[in-house]
Nucleic acid binder design. Structure first.
Lengths: 359, 359
DNA sequence: CTTAAATATGGTACCGTTCCCACATTTTAT
DNA sequence: ATAAAATGTGGGAACGGTACCATATTTAAG
């Protein structure tokens, strides 16, 4: 492997060119200690002319800080994560940190041998690169398996580098958790649909075995059982994507009769709406679709999706701030995002509230 | 700033604990040179027990390689970039490189003083962090201003670190360019709409002053002038987002009479479709909307968007591979993405081709 | 049995910074 | 005038690795 060695300018060159010692150059770089105005100006001139910038590598080796954070996530193309990344990047930047992005593309619960597990690999990268802290978004931690190699590696890593995880809290994990009000959001959307008078409500999407999905489903079942004759055929879990809504809705309607469906998120909802449209059914006239998790753009769909704003982005801010707190030795609490809001749009029809909540 | 010093394990500790010299430990880490089986096993045991991983920082200082690439982009939340990032991440990972993500959030042509320019700042970060190479996606380079501070800094950086830019080629820039077939895509969609018989065609979206937009508009005008009575009121430039389609379509229809519109991308198209829907117009019955740039999900919209697959993701792969080639001292060419394809869906109505292309 | 080659191991300079320390010079206080 | 404090400057160790070199031991070859 032939490397075209491009000569980097170092502090020594600056020292030589300006006739000062490296110590003095270092002093002007860091604006610390005493430097005479003459020397300072001479050095600054050389720095400007040579386009010199001190190597963060060398600095890091000494300071043991890289001014870098890592973000690990299972799938960049998932819009749920985009807002999060954006927020994390923004807040990190504000604190002077650069971001390393690791996309594990882990498909979920399907486990492979620990050595090749991309999520374990991500943890190793974090350790090797000596980032100052890491934010892990969902992924393996969201699945039921809890005494895995992954969790061990994670706890081990957390001893060296502070790790904040954006996911529902897991007992055996020592990292800081930042989580959403899963139940509240689900409650809001189900109550809304109930209040509109619908009593044959289905649940569509989400991956079985994933904590968030299971919790939301539990909340859904709890509520639906209170107010309707619950039928376990009214639930279909598959995944979080458009196609899961698209294929799922047909399957769901084949196995039971429904006049309302709660989708796990707006994309699943869109997929369902699209399929229903193709089947000649109108949303919300023939069937009503609500979603439990707002994604960008869904206010532009036809019909626009009635959904829950989970304020996901606020999680990003909280996560980074927890990390910064941890750098400063400040304590932190298990944090939750802002309280979810019901966002009423078209896919559930007009808000009527004429029906009181009762069976 | 109180840092909780978490003691990192170093090669010296491993050396001490295993009773071997650091040289020997280094040899087993790199699987180079001679090491007896006994010592190797002893060392490996210690490494395993201590969870030791060599510091990339220290390694980089010596090797002058960080095994890291930087990606700079103007807006992570723009879905156009997402696929690109995903691809860049994937290919980089395959070559053993980690990604640094820099989101400049530069709003476009509006320039600020060079010092605070986030894009210039991004270049500085790249230099400081000593990444092995950088991929810059659009941003400032896409605008007309060409003898800017930014361009100078960019060329200067490119002398030290290879930079690949995903954008239309700019003369005064020495970096490697990877670009799309801008004109071909526009030609395909306009020809398609013409072939369906429409002769009152508008152009919607895209930021004025941005190279891609100007080139596409030029191509659009060329074609439309050939086959129709061109009216310069049929063009409205604003930006690339949903709201630009949403607000723009109404404005456009107020200033001239149209039966077809080419949107700069699928989001602008969706915005337009949504607004038309609210205005009581049906797409494609009352007016036809085509798009020049495919974004994810637009096949699920109602109506689904007839558009151009620019194979944007292939740009990511090409970009990283150019970088790798450059590391190896291999030559490279100004590269272009795969050839664009017309994707016929619903928003332009059925494909008829009954109308021959003629005025 | 001698010598060369292969194997095995540790010492040390170096990568680009920072920072402590020593020393020199100037300024201020007494 | 003299001590003390403030200012200015450079030398060199350290950060955690790598790799070249020297040296020691074993194995193979003649």
């Amino acid at each position: 492997m032939l490397i075209t060695k491009k000569h980097d300018i170092t502090i020594k060159e600056i020292s030589k060119l300006s006739g000062a010692s490296t110590s003095t150059v270092s002093r002007v770089l860091n604006e610390s200690g005493y430097v005479s105005t003459e020397k300072r100006q001479a050095i600054e001139k050389v720095i400007r002319e040579t386009n010199y910038r001190p190597s963060m590598i060398a600095r890091s080796l000494h300071s043991k800080q890289t001014k870098t954070l890592a973000v690990v996530l299972p799938d960049v193309s998932n819009p749920y994560f985009i807002g999060l990344i954006e927020e994390i990047e923004h807040v990190s930047e504000g604190y002077g940190y650069t971001l390393i992005l690791i996309n594990t593309m882990s498909t979920g619960a399907d486990k492979m041998n620990a050595v090749d597990d991309p999520e374990v690999k991500a943890l190793h990268t974090i350790q090797e690169k000596h980032v100052d802290g890491a934010v892990i978004i969902g992924g393996e931690i969201d699945h039921v398996n809890v005494d895995s190699q992954y969790l061990k590696t994670l706890n081990e890593l957390n001893k060296q580098i502070p790790v904040v995880i954006i996911a529902q809290k897991v007992e055996n994990c020592d990292c800081i958790f930042v989580q959403r009000h899963i139940n509240t959001g689900m409650r809001l959307i189900v109550q809304h649909i109930l209040s509109l008078g619908y009593r044959k409500i289905g649940f569509l999407g989400g991956k079985p075995g994933v904590r968030v999905t299971e919790q939301r489903l539990a909340e859904f079942e709890k509520l639906v059982k209170m107010y309707t004759d619950y039928d376990d055929k009214s639930v279909l879990l598959n995944d979080y994507y458009l196609k899961d809504g698209y294929q799922g809705i047909e399957k769901l309607l084949n196995q039971t009769d429904l006049n309302a469906v709660v989708a796990i998120n707006d994309r699943v909802a869109l997929g369902a709406v699209r399929r229903l449209h193709e089947m000649g059914m109108n949303v919300p006239k023939d069937i009503v679709i609500g979603s439990a998790d707002q994604f960008p753009d869904s206010d532009y769909y036809i019909p626009s999706i009635t959904t829950i704003n989970q304020h996901n982005n606020s999680l990003g801010k909280i996560a980074v701030e927890q990390l910064i707190r941890s750098f400063n030795g400040q304590p932190f609490l298990t944090a939750e995002s802002e309280f979810p809001d019901l966002v009423i749009r078209e896919s559930c029809g007009e808000k009527k509230y004429s029906n009181v909540l009762k069976k």
